[in-house]
Nucleic acid binder design. Structure first.
Lengths: 308, 308
DNA sequence: AACATAATTCCATTAAATGGAACCGTGTTT
DNA sequence: AAACACGGTTCCATTTAATGGAATTATGTT
């Protein structure tokens, strides 16, 4: 690769170094052996910042894709080049491959946008998501009972990724939420999910967040967040009191996936003027109840391999 | 990659083939079965300057991802192995990489499902799609004028991929259409889009389709399809008369992207009992009008790089 | 407990990605 | 209009990382 060793890409296993033990020690230390570089538990990794890890060529391709996808306008070749600091030839081939696979599309002339194949793949991911399909009728019922918007989200690193949404009126931004990610610290679902984690895990994540103030009431420190989450853990209900968007409030509860595979949550969201304290209290009970029901049903559907 | 001359450009545009006779196929010459999924490559007007059809490692990873995504249940390691006929070690690493990148997730134990990252990427692709964002208010107006479901789709190979949908009632399958793909020959949008292509291109695609009968009225031959498309090209309106789903009819019109970047279409769909001949005629005019307006607006927004 | 099957790891081999430099083509400047 | 500059594309020797067969370990079944 070349005369110019770039620290970023040089070593295979960047972050976590390879197993300190000798490779020949493969006998029976399996007790603690979560494979060194392939973490099967989602907690250790996250996110959005620099994602260069040891997934080789695939990881590099996705880095390029991320740049294209997370930009807010079509990117030209040189834009991407500047963003990634990579040799021209290499980047060109990577982009060509992404385009050939339909993951990106060349707009007009030489401007790249995320491609259709992503939509096709995501449609499958969405329709086959077991939590989502189990939850769907529950969400619908909850929406009918409350008349407000209902969200379903899952924990992903330091964010909540929304899996589904039920709202009354089709606005112009229709399914704008599905697949979108929001910070944990300023959303009801996010805080509810945090409350399901171990103390250590909560603190760990709280520490790694970037607290940007969205409204006057946003919690902007790990301490404030952890205190509130602690309270949520006891009551089972989380609130967003215009912490993410002015005028918008919500009540949320968490859902524990079976197998400890993940934590999810759901919420009822609406404008503050329609959701006063008494309304929130009422909705809160419904949310809690719905969450419980979804939990029970997923347990019944996915769980029963253990108790036979 | 290939130490091979790119001599044979003979292969057609379909974009497939991508199988440059792997040199490593001396041991097992398993003709790598390209899945029938015609991959991407929208434009592909005949003799494309056969630029690079081998996407190398990325392509192989996506092959694995496709298997996982297009299955209708979580796949275990061996399932994928049987489907792809690949060495264990290789497949294992590929899956591990996909999992490490979040493109697939290990369900329960060793069962893989498409991952959250796909949703996140697709959300960006969707929200930033220029046609979709331009069309959105038009679709909403059309829905309000007709009271029926409105679809927006784009041409992708032999399929229509739905970009958006506006419907009155939130059913349980809410955004089920977005990102989904349907055949061209049995959908209104599909036939409308075909009518925008050159005669040669129409015939080429019609020839490559697999005509599966969905209902008694499905067109099941290239001849029948081409005849109807020819008629559509003159009238500007396409119909689906219960050809895809019994009891469901639709009227559709096509939209030409600027720059010849692609062809799209939109439709009004509803149950046959609500959409009789006179209703369809009325809706048809609205659809045609809406398509025209979207076309004009995309032209205005995306086109004017030329006149400055 | 013994067996069968699935999943994972190892490592020499080799294909494939890399990246520097040369090459085109289009839009800008003088 | 000619010369230029810049963004994009192609080439090819070098080096990396993907490969795949076999051995090893985990998991589930009789």
């Amino acid at each position: 690769m070349g005369a110019r060793p770039k620290a970023s890409q040089a070593d295979r296993v960047g972050g976590e170094d390879q197993n300190p033990q000798h490779p020949s020690a493969r006998h029976r230390d399996t007790a603690r052996s979560v494979p060194p570089d392939q973490r099967s538990n989602p907690k250790s990794q996250d996110a959005v910042s620099d994602t260069n890890i040891s997934t080789g060529t695939l990881g590099k391709a996705l880095e390029v894709l991320d740049v294209i996808a997370s930009a807010d306008r079509p990117m030209r070749f040189t834009d991407i080049l500047n963003r990634l600091d990579q040799p021209r030839g290499t980047l060109h081939r990577q982009i060509s491959n992404l385009a050939a696979e339909g993951l990106v599309t060349a707009d007009e002339n030489h401007a790249y946008v995320p491609g259709l194949r992503l939509l096709k793949l995501a449609a499958r991911a969405w329709s086959r998501n077991s939590l989502r399909s189990v939850a769907a009728p529950h969400l619908l019922r909850l929406h009918e009972a409350t008349g407000e918007t209902v969200h379903l989200g899952v924990l992903n690193g330091l964010e909540v990724v929304y899996l589904d949404k039920v709202e009354s009126r089709q606005t112009v931004r229709m399914h704008s939420q599905v697949g979108n990610a929001s910070p944990l610290f300023c959303t009801g679902v996010g805080k509810a999910m945090l409350a399901r984690l171990s103390l250590h895990d909560r603190a760990d994540r709280a520490e790694r967040m970037h607290y940007t103030r969205h409204t006057p009431s946003t919690l902007v420190s790990a301490e404030a967040l952890l205190a509130e989450v602690d309270h949520i853990a006891r009551t089972g209900l989380a609130y967003d009191r215009e912490e993410h968007e002015p005028g918008i409030v919500c009540v949320a509860a968490s859902i524990q996936h079976p197998e400890g595979e993940g934590v999810a949550g759901l919420s009822v969201t609406g404008p503050a003027y329609r959701m006063g304290p008494e309304q929130i209290a009422r909705f809160g009970e419904l949310v809690r109840e719905t969450a419980k029901n979804i939990e029970i049903e997923t347990d019944a559907r996915l769980g029963p391999r253990h108790r036979e």
